[in-house]
Design a protein around this nucleic acid. Structure first.
Length: 227
DNA sequence: ATTTGGATACTCT
DNA sequence: GAGTATCCAAATA
C-alpha cells in the first residue's frame, strides 16, 4: 500500500518544540481518530497555545493537579478535559517534557468519515459546523476522557494520530486573543487560525458565570470591542 | 445578525 | 462553594 506524502505520521520531535512554534504549525495538519466504527479525520483550522505553569490562562497555572497531570508528561500525548458539565476538549502536549504546555484543538474541517461524524453530532446544521469549536470537534471525533494520555505518535493503529497534511503558509495564518480566557491570560494573542476558513469558530470574550439568581451588581463593564 | 440564559458535573479552594 | 479553554435554543432587532 502506497503512502501519500500528506499522510505520513508526524513524529514526536514535531511536538518536542516550544508551544508557540508547534501551535501555528499544526494548522492544515490531519488529525485522525480511529474508532471501532471507522476513522474520522479533520484538517485542523484553529488552535490555541497554552504555555505551562507561567501562563495564567493555562490549566497548568499553579502547578500540577490530578486533572492536568498529563500536561506535565511527554509531548505528543492527548490531554482531554471535561468542562461545563457536558463537554470534552482535546489538547496535544508540546515542548520538552515537564514544561506542561499544550495546544487546544479548537476547530477543523472533517475530510474523512463525515457520515460517522454526523452520527456523533446529529445537531450540526451542515458539514463545516461538525467540528467548529473545541467541544464540537471532540464530539465529532468521539473523544472523551478515556483518551486522556493517549499517544498521538504511537503508530497507524492507535486510536489517535496526526498526519503531515498540508502545512499552511504564514501569510494565511491569523492570530488573536484566546477565546473564553479571562484575566491576565487574555492579553496573549495565542489563538491561531486559517484566514477565512468556514470551520473557524467565532471569537467569544471571557464571560464569568454568575451562580444562583442574586446578581447583586449592575455595574458590569462593557466588553471592549476591537475594529 | 447578535445577544441572552440555561443545562450540566467536575475541579480546586 | 464558586468558577469553568462550551454549546444550544430562544428572544431580540
Amino acid at each position: 500500500m502506497t503512502e501519500r506524502p500528506d499522510r505520513l505520521p508526524l513524529d514526536r520531535a514535531f511536538f518536542h518544540r516550544p508551544v508557540l512554534d508547534v501551535a501555528p504549525d499544526l494548522l492544515g495538519r490531519t488529525l485522525v481518530r480511529r474508532t471501532p466504527e471507522g476513522p474520522v479525520e479533520v484538517r485542523l483550522t484553529e488552535v490555541e497555545a497554552y504555555a505551562g505553569p507561567a501562563d495564567p490562562g493555562s490549566h497548568a497555572y499553579r502547578g500540577r493537579t490530578p486533572r492536568n497531570a498529563v500536561m506535565f508528561g511527554p509531548p505528543g500525548h492527548a490531554y482531554v478535559y471535561f468542562t461545563y458539565g457536558m463537554w470534552h476538549c482535546l489538547n496535544l502536549v508540546c515542548g520538552p517534557e515537564g514544561t506542561a504546555s499544550g495546544v487546544l484543538l479548537r476547530a477543523g474541517e472533517v475530510i474523512r468519515g463525515v457520515e460517522l461524524a454526523r452520527r456523533h453530532r446529529p445537531t450540526a446544521r451542515n458539514d463545516h459546523e461538525l467540528a467548529k469549536g473545541p467541544a464540537r470537534l471532540a464530539t465529532a471525533l468521539d473523544v472523551d476522557r478515556s483518551l486522556n494520555g493517549a499517544d498521538a505518535c504511537d503508530g497507524p493503529e492507535a486510536p489517535l494520530g496526526i498526519l503531515t497534511g498540508t502545512p499552511v503558509p504564514p501569510s494565511r495564518i491569523r492570530q488573536g486573543p484566546r477565546t473564553g480566557v479571562g484575566g491576565a491570560g487574555a492579553t496573549q494573542p495565542w489563538r491561531f487560525w486559517i484566514d477565512g476558513d468556514r470551520s473557524v469558530s467565532p471569537y467569544r470574550a471571557h464571560t464569568p458565570r454568575r451562580r444562583g439568581r442574586a446578581a447583586g451588581r449592575t455595574e458590569l463593564d462593557s466588553a471592549g470591542r476591537d475594529a
